[in-house]
């Protein structure tokens, strides 16, 4: 089985008009998972994906850590609290935000070549 293609997160940032809340220079992702239910992410998200959600609660960081999710994309213009950004930095989770809906963001990520 061929390993999943990984993308430099930084190269996908313009496609989703993303604002970076933490440093994303070294991050690579293998796909995208969209869900706002944390238990669903715990059950179904694959490690290495970019997680798109409207949830900005600090629990998102803990779930990302548990599932080895390197980066979280807050959609619909949602912005995390400063405390959440600090926790993400400490935990090594990258946070981005986009004004796009999850659907529009997914479409643009797909067009950029991210198909998993």
């Amino acid at each position: 089985m061929t390993p999943p293609t990984s993308f430099k997160l930084k190269t996908l940032v313009p496609a989703v008009k993303a604002e970076l809340f933490t440093d994303a220079s070294e991050c690579e992702i293998t796909g995208c998972y969209i869900s706002d239910l944390l238990s669903d992410v715990l059950a179904h998200a694959k490690p290495g994906v970019l997680w798109a959600t409207v949830q900005t609660h600090r629990n998102v960081i803990s779930v990302a850590c548990t599932k080895d999710i390197p980066a979280v994309l807050f959609v619909c213009g949602r912005k995390p609290e400063a405390e959440v950004i600090k926790e993400a930095e400490e935990a090594g989770v990258i946070l981005l935000g986009t004004p796009l809906t999850a659907f529009a963001a997914a479409g643009r990520l797909w067009e950029s070549g991210l198909h998993e």
């Binding site: 238990s39 803990s62 850590c65 935990a91």
Partner: peptide, 16 residues
């Protein structure tokens, strides 16, 4: 330090 693993999230989820 770094990535947190195997942490209990039950109370944190209900709080949220």
């Amino acid at each position: 330090k770094g990535r947190k693993k195997n942490i209990g999230l039950g109370l944190a989820f209900l709080q949220q």
